[in-house]
Amino acid sequence: MSPGEPLLSVRDLVQEFAVRDRGGVKGGVVQAVSGVSFDVWPGETLGIVGETGSGKSTLARSIVQAPRPKAGSVTFRGTDLVTLRGTRLLRARRHLQMVFQDPYGSLDPKWRVTDLVEEPLIAYRTGDKAARRRRVAEVLELVGLDPSAHGGRHPRELSGGQAQRVAIARAVALSPAMIICDEAVSSLDVLIQAQVLNLFERLRAELSLSYLFIAHDLALVKQVSDRVAVMYLGKLCEIGPGEAVYREPLHPYTRALLDAVPSPDPAAARAATTIRGEPPSPIHPPSGCRFRTRCPRAQNRCAAEAPALRELATGHAVACHFPLDRGEAEPAASTTARSAQGENP
């Protein structure tokens, strides 16, 4: 891998699952991820926001080949993971770790903290016992845990924040180049969440890590990301520098997501729900643009033709036939702006 190349390069990734109705009859195919492409550069954090069913978690799992995607390529440090099998895949994946939402669910309750953190080192046959123990103490300190105080505990003897630190220690133990965080702070109380977010930021600087930071919380993703991608029903709607995507969103869905975030400042506009209804079924996604059934700007063309992701400003791309202009990208001034936005595209 040369320095001018992306660390992770995902191209036309497709992931589908067959669902079965009663009696094992094939009920349809969930199109969880449908042709997603993006790059993550060394040292960069790419945030991915999306709601339930957007395919963001499936995307994460497809990247680590668990399970292998149906189509597309996942080039990590110059190697296409999709083509690898067995130990070669395992070896390539060593530098690509994951942290999940529920630390208690991802940590074996019968194991002690030190054993939990040592386990990946054993799995990859790293050093001898003494070296591994030194590394465990080192990474526990790194994530803000005291090896002597916390090392002998079981997961249930830890708070949610501490347990998540153990999960992070496991992820960094093998010195990965990239960590995929799937809703990694979403279940934590806000004060603990802030501590763990700061920890992610500190580790990024100290260990030159890259993150793929997946969450449904837009403000959270903004906090840690250099670039942000927005997913809806298995496709990328928009991708660009974080500041640009949040200040001047191009996709109507991004605008709607931003409007729905409650602000702690009561003087700020109350969430103006610009989209109504429920996301359609991923088994029968709408033709053309998948967002068109809920989009205030949708026209005939949106049903006929799927919009391709195209770059409208430097590094800022949108998949929409009728993207928002800069002026329209302003937040709705009040709830009354809802109808105005819907009627005057």
């Binding site: 004060l191 802030a194 977010l197 700061n198 903004k222 906090q223 840690v224 500041e243």
Partner: peptide, 19 residues
């Protein structure tokens, strides 16, 4: 402390959260 720890849309990226 609660107010300050909430990630906010208006806050620039990578600014450490007061904890």
């Amino acid at each position: 402390a609660l107010f300050e720890a909430i990630p906010r849309l208006e806050r620039p990226a990578h600014a450490p959260l007061p904890v």
